[in-house]
């Protein structure tokens, strides 16, 4: 447990010293979502219809940008090697890393999403719903994405490959997430898609770190 706390604290401290890895995907998310009113029409009634899709696709792309750096620096400076040789379970250490990654990228994204939503005509009453769905959804994205990030460690310029690997895997998250967001905007109950998102998160928490650890071991060889 102490080891998990150390990994988490270290990643948070690194993010404070070098915030661009978290700030850039967030800025990207806000920029992409504000392009839609400019490109389509400033009419809020029209934008409201596409808002869930816009928010989710932008969140997905921004998550992919952030995922590229999940393990890259640690692989380059030998930290992952030392994790694998620490005598601690690599699976748990990577879970702690992924948790830190979500705290630094997914959670802030969920918190600023209402801001982007406002530009797309989302009513204030739907703000809590949007933050909740994107918060849970981005957790699933971080976990599933950690497998892709680990698999592409050995690949030079693995960003595109990472997208190709991860995007098909996160389609269910996109479907249930944007469904929940649509319901939240309409002011209807979001419980059903949220429960399915929760189930995906539980499944991902259980399996993704195992797969990521196996992939990291291969990349270290």
């Amino acid at each position: 447990m102490n080891a998990l706390r150390l990994v988490l604290m270290r990643d948070l401290m690194l993010a404070v010293r070098r915030p661009e890895h978290c700030v850039h995907p967030l800025a990207f998310f806000l920029l992409v979502t504000t392009l839609f009113p400019l490109a389509i029409s400033p009419q809020l009634s029209q934008l409201r219809l596409i808002a869930p899709g816009v928010l989710w696709v932008a969140a997905l792309l921004s998550a992919l940008l952030a995922l590229e750096f999940l393990f890259r620096d640690d692989a380059a400076d030998g930290t992952l090697e030392q994790y694998a040789l620490s005598g601690q379970s690599l699976t748990w250490l990577l879970l702690a890393k992924t948790a830190a990654h979500w705290l630094l990228t997914g959670l802030p994204l969920a918190l600023v999403a209402p801001l982007a939503g406002a530009a797309l005509g989302v009513p204030v009453s739907a703000f809590p719903g949007i933050t909740a769905t994107l918060g849970l959804g981005s957790l699933a994205l971080s976990l599933i994405g950690s497998i892709g990030a680990a698999l592409t460690l050995g690949v030079r310029r693995g960003g595109v490959l990472l997208s190709i690997l991860v995007l098909p895997l996160v389609v269910p998250v996109l479907i249930f997430g944007s469904q929940a967001t649509t319901l939240a905007i309409r002011g209807e109950a979001v419980a059903a898609p949220m429960e399915l998102l929760g189930a995906i998160v539980v499944l991902a928490v259980t399996l993704a770190p195992l797969a990521a650890a196996a992939a990291v071991r291969i990349s270290l060889e």
Binding site: A3, R10, D73
Partner: peptide, 17 residues
């Protein structure tokens, strides 16, 4: 880690063990 001090690095690296 380049962005941490030597002391912090040791605390995190060896602290794992």
């Amino acid at each position: 880690k380049p962005d941490l001090t030597a002391r912090e690095n040791l605390r995190f690296w060896i602290g794992l063990r």
